[in-house]
Write a protein that binds this DNA or RNA. Structure first.
Length: 271
DNA sequence: ACTGGCTCCTGAGGGC
DNA sequence: TGCCCTCAGGAGCCAG
């Protein structure tokens, strides 16, 4: 399930193959993603050159001459490069073919992903305009987090997973970062002191950077642009480890439900 | 303004 | 062996 590290790994994998390439054709075999794939994509993109492959949160931005393709992988989506015209299998919904003879193919069994085409600045797109800061940027700090948490009563875990708080911290990394910071995921966001927010911001950077370094986490469906899997999974300290010993103190890791989501924690190390 | 719950979808995994 | 049920998950949307 792509979280920020998986999306960034994908971006790095595909960018060298796409930048400077001219799009020859867009094939939409299944337009029913989270939102319908706009017809304008197949109509307007062919003939244009891609100038950059960027990322904002978990959205990939393919910048072309007159507009930008915005791509979200949802939770089961992936893209990979393969020869144009390669037979399409199940769930391989969209191809963007290039003059190089390669095509970028979107696969998404659960169709939670989406594809958009905008002629405006993509950062002003309704889905992107209200996103929180990039966690790996220098301006993402404990102070920023704490300021946004003022008076908030929801749990710190759910607060972190809100993309308006900070982008790219999904279920896995929220649990991992809170473990590293020693904070109980059930604690109210507005009831955490400044020094602990400093620690938490640093933990988020640490866990995301480490995961990118490892090429993403890969639990089930994800593979990078080159089709290889990530290796961060073996470094997870709490996520998916219910009943197994805490790596710090040995107490069994607990699973709790927050919202409809699983959270994992060590009740001795996290307060 | 916040908050929690619902929703989309398919495949995996468990129980029988 | 095979069926049926439950669950997982990003994040927009809506009701309270």
């Amino acid at each position: 399930m792509p979280e920020l590290p998986e999306v960034e790994t994908t971006r790095r994998g595909i960018a060298p193959h796409l930048v400077g390439q001219r799009v020859t054709q867009v094939t939409v075999r299944e337009a029913r993603l989270r939102w319908p794939v706009p017809r304008a994509l197949a109509r307007e993109l062919p003939g244009q050159t891609l100038h950059a492959v960027e990322r904002r949160g978990k959205y990939l931005l393919l910048r072309a001459d007159t507009g930008t393709v915005i791509l979200h992988l949802g939770m089961s989506g992936s893209v990979r490069l393969l020869p144009s015209g390669a037979p399409a299998r199940k769930h391989e919904h969209v191809d963007i073919a290039f003059g190089s003879g390669q095509c970028l193919r979107l696969t998404d069994p659960r169709r939670f992903g989406s594809l958009h085409w905008t002629r405006a600045d993509p950062l002003t797109h309704p889905l992107l305009v209200d996103l929180g800061p990039e966690p790996l940027a220098a301006d993402f700090t404990g102070e920023i987090l704490q300021a946004r948490a003022q008076g908030r009563k929801l749990s710190i875990k759910q607060f972190l997973m809100d993309s308006h708080t900070v982008v790219g911290v999904g279920n896995i990394y929220a649990s991992e970062a809170l473990f590293l910071a020693g904070i109980d995921p059930r604690r109210a966001a507005g009831r955490i002191a400044a020094p602990r927010y400093q620690h938490l911001a640093q933990a988020i950077k640490t866990v995301l950077a480490a995961s990118i370094e490892q090429g993403g986490t890969t639990l089930r469906d994800f593979s990078g642009g080159d089709g290889k899997s990530g290796y961060f999974k073996q470094h997870l300290r709490v996520y998916g480890r219910e009943g197994e010993p805490c790596t710090a103190c040995g107490r069994p890791i607990r699973l709790v439900r927050q919202g409809q989501r699983a959270s994992y924690l060590c009740t001795r190390c996290q307060r």
